[in-house]
Write a protein that binds this DNA or RNA. Structure first.
Length: 262
DNA sequence: ATGGTCGACTATCGA
């Protein structure tokens, strides 16, 4: 079987219901993973998604903040969640396809402004979240698994608009990149997007605060699609849909796609 | 070096 999967930090699914519907209608991924839905699950607007064939939903939500959802045309079953770093936030959910493939959808904490856990509790929580991801995957040794989401880290020099300028900016500091590398190694994860697009600047997020985002292009690649080593060779056709950032009242993130032949 | 903009929901907090 072949399926196309997308991941998108939507920054309020209720405000941007029409944009989700537009993406589903125009791009027709089989599975769409959303982050920052900012809604309890029972207040998610699902009717329009259902009408387009996305009848299977696995989600975790909360009022006002965070929240992750997996919308699927293919049958999926709920494969659970975990409260990483004991924050009490809805930042992870997993689903299982009928062929046994597990999809993990993550919204890693942004980590605040100061990259020092002694001065900024949020930065410590981000590192602790990543450390627990490392430990869980070291224990689980995941197979036939896909991990997507807003990981809030741009690991490579060409994942940011200016590597040197961002070395002390949260999302691109060496300590965060090292933590993310540890997660990848513990789980045997491969970066599918960079497997397909191995070089060149690649961004999935542009700040709302940056004027003229398109021309200035001060972006970062914060949104990722990974796969375990046993299925990484089945992934192809990765792309980042930059155009949604130019839609009216956009999310600051854009969707990332990959296709798997399994 | 600083401030810049959003979204949730009322006054700030989180990003």
């Amino acid at each position: 079987m072949s399926f196309t999967l997308a991941t998108w930090n939507i920054n309020s699914v209720r405000l941007r219901e029409a944009q989700v519907t537009r993406l589903l209608g125009e791009e027709t991924p089989d599975i769409l993973c959303l982050q920052e839905i900012k809604s309890p699950v029972d207040k998610m607007p699902l009717e329009g998604f259902r009408a387009l064939g996305y009848t299977h939903v696995v989600a975790r939500g909360q009022k006002g903040y965070n929240g992750v959802a997996i919308l699927s045309k293919l049958p999926i079953e709920d494969a659970g969640d975990r409260d990483y770093a004991a924050l009490g936030h809805a930042r992870h959910v997993a689903a299982r396809l009928e062929n046994g493939v597990v999809i993990h959808n993550f919204y890693v904490p942004a980590g605040g402004d100061i990259p020092d856990r002694a001065q900024n509790i949020k930065f410590g929580q981000k590192l602790d979240f990543l450390t627990e991801m490392r430990d869980v995957f070291a224990e689980e040794k995941p197979q036939k698994s896909i991990l997507v989401g807003d990981l809030n880290i741009a690991p490579r020099e060409d994942d940011v608009w200016d590597h040197k300028k961002l070395l002390k900016i949260v999302s691109h500091t060496p300590v965060e990149v090292n933590h993310l590398t540890d997660v990848m190694e513990a789980g045997g994860w491969a970066d599918v997007t960079r497997q397909d697009i191995p070089s060149g600047k690649l961004f999935s997020w542009w700040s709302y605060r940056s004027p003229d985002w398109d021309a200035a292009d001060k972006g970062r690649r914060l949104d990722h699609i990974w796969a375990t080593g046993d299925i990484k060779a089945s992934a192809h056709s990765s792309r980042i849909l930059r155009t949604t950032r130019g839609w009216e009242q956009p999310s600051d993130h854009v969707p990332v796609f990959a296709t798997f032949d399994l």
